[in-house]
């Protein structure tokens, strides 16, 4: 817990040590990933094999992490910003997942009663 205590800087410089060229390369990467996402949507194999949704999920996750790491500087900035944001992100993610799962079983439950006539 006290790891960062010792180097507490008096000023927050935002620590951007990335060059414009890096930013442009990252933008290219993001564009390529987006293009791939859209492209695989039009490939039938992904639909029939059931790999489309996992592939899209992974690709957008990569985009998401790239933007927060580089454009929002979480990778190079003070780690405490990262903790704050990731806490919110994880909490939100867990609650979204739980809500979706709970509501889904609820709907299925209704359908089940409908089918079984209960």
């Amino acid at each position: 817990m006290t790891d960062h205590a010792m180097h507490a800087p008096a000023e927050d410089h935002g620590q951007e040590h990335l060059s414009d060229a890096t930013y442009i390369k990252i933008a290219l990467l993001l564009v390529v990933i987006t293009a791939v996402e859209v492209a695989i949507y039009y490939v039938d194999w992904f639909h029939t094999s059931g790999t489309l949704v996992p592939a899209l999920a992974v690709l957008s996750l990569v985009k998401f992490i790239t933007v927060i790491s580089y454009y929002m500087h979480l990778k190079v900035d003070d780690p405490r910003y990262r903790y704050i944001f990731v806490c919110g992100l994880i909490l939100a993610g867990l609650i979204v997942a739980a809500l979706a799962a709970l509501m889904r079983t609820h709907k299925i439950d209704y359908a089940l009663r409908f089918i079984t006539g209960a």
Partner: peptide
């Protein structure tokens, strides 16, 4: 939470 035990330096 791990982040918050810091040596306060300047106020």
């Amino acid at each position: 939470m791990a982040s918050i035990a810091h040596q306060p330096q300047i106020v």
